[in-house]
Simulated assay, not measured.
Amino acid sequence: MKVLVTELMWEDGIEELKQTGHTVDYDMELCRKRDDLLKLAPKYDALIVRNETRVDPELLDVAKNVKVIGRLGVGLDNIDLEATKARNIPVIAAKHANATSVVEYVMAAMLDAYRPLADADADVRLGNWDRKFFTGYELNQKTLGLVGLGEIAHRVARRASAFGIRVIGYDPFVTSYDHVLAETGVYPVTTLDELFPESDFISVHVPLTKATKHMINKESFSRMKSHAYVINTARGGIVHELDLVEAVQSEKIAGAYLDVLENEPVQQGSPLLQVESIRLSPHIAGLTDESQSRTAMLIAREVTKVLNGGESLCAVL
């Protein structure tokens, strides 16, 4: 079978595909070369993508031999699931493979907000010794509000609790019997209007849908504490970025950590770049060496399973 990989994939996953007998063509920039992708797609039995490749009806109409699509991650907003379902093409996502890495990013963001060691180091190297300015705060006894209570939020809650952080959460699809509430000790709230005023940190863990687009906006920021931080490792577009800039500049909230943006990469001249307390990273929350190895191996094995006529427990549809 022939497999086309259109974005970054760790080498061990590619080797796994080759060792199971597949021919693999790998171009991590192909996602940005649409015309080339459309010309190549008909030759392949499987596509493996990340988050930049648009898997839409146009691509699927020419990829007539594709039997399975592997997604190196869990976000699916770049894949037209209705179109894949109509063509009976299973989509395999890397279920939970990068969850631990995202969780540790969230913890790092909270620690950085209260103890900015890189800033302290830079200041000392300038010849200063400002112990009062870099006194910082404790996470102990602070409140973390989780927007969405899936697997990643569950793992965040476990680690946050070890720091003595009170964890509350909002998710209309979670009941009191689900493990994140029943076993992790997250206190459920019934609306975001309850969550925002209580939280010192708000961490976003929902997919980007019509319902969640710009879910956190000007009205949301007006309900938050003036020292609150927003952390978004989910998807760009859930947080209204211009409203965020205004909220931070007017000191309605303290700042934000954005790993994902509505338009990636960030454009020079973006208002986000003008606000120092909005910290940006290049969509790396789930990118650690360990997580990417797990992701690549999981997708390689599950795609092979489907190509061999089997079914995958990681199939989205």
Rank of each mutant, 00 (worst) to 15 (best):
S281C: 10
G269Y: 11
D61F: 10
A46M: 03
D171M: 09
V206H: 08
P207D: 10
C31W: 13
S277W: 00
L47N: 04
A247V: 03
I202V: 12
V156C: 05
V266I: 13
L181M: 08
L81H: 10
A228R: 00
P116Y: 08
L273G: 04
L298Q: 04
W129F: 15
L144W: 06
F196W: 03
Y137F: 08
S101F: 02
G286D: 04
T175Q: 11
S291V: 00
Y44N: 14
V189I: 08
G73R: 10
N308P: 11
D80T: 13
E276M: 05
L313S: 12
T184F: 14
D27F: 07
H22R: 07
L30F: 14
G127Q: 13
P172K: 03
L47H: 03
L149R: 04
I278Q: 00
L149M: 07
T295P: 00
Y105N: 07
S312V: 06
L298C: 04
T84N: 12
I299M: 05
T23K: 14
L272I: 04
M1A: 12
E246Q: 12
W129N: 14
E194L: 06
H227N: 09
I253S: 00
P90A: 07
A182L: 13
V275M: 01
P265R: 07
E241M: 01
K2A: 13
D112V: 09
K142T: 08
N308G: 15
E219V: 13
I216T: 08
L195Q: 02
H283C: 10
V303P: 01
A234S: 10
R71Q: 11
I165P: 08
I89W: 01
F196P: 07
P57V: 02
S226T: 15
A86G: 14
N232W: 01
K213M: 12
D77E: 13
I168C: 05
L244C: 00
S270F: 02
T233R: 03
R155K: 07
T209D: 15
H96C: 06
Y229N: 06
L59M: 11
D27T: 09
G73I: 01
T295H: 02
L144P: 02
A247I: 02
E183R: 15
R34N: 02
L60Q: 12
R155G: 01
R87D: 05
A86H: 12
V275R: 01
T209C: 14
D178Y: 12
Y114L: 12
E262G: 05
Y229M: 11
S199Q: 05
M215C: 03
Y177Q: 15
Q268A: 15
K132D: 14
L8R: 09
V3W: 13
D121T: 15
Q267W: 09
Y105R: 03
N78L: 01
E183I: 11
H283T: 13
I152R: 02
S250H: 04
D61I: 11
S222C: 06
N51K: 11
G75C: 10
G310H: 12
V156Q: 11
N65F: 11
V275W: 00
V24G: 01
A285N: 07
I165T: 07
E29M: 12
L146I: 09
G236M: 12
P57L: 02
I253A: 02
L244K: 01
R131I: 15
V24Y: 14
T209L: 15
W129A: 14
A97F: 06
A157E: 07
A157W: 01
E16M: 05
V189M: 01
R235G: 04
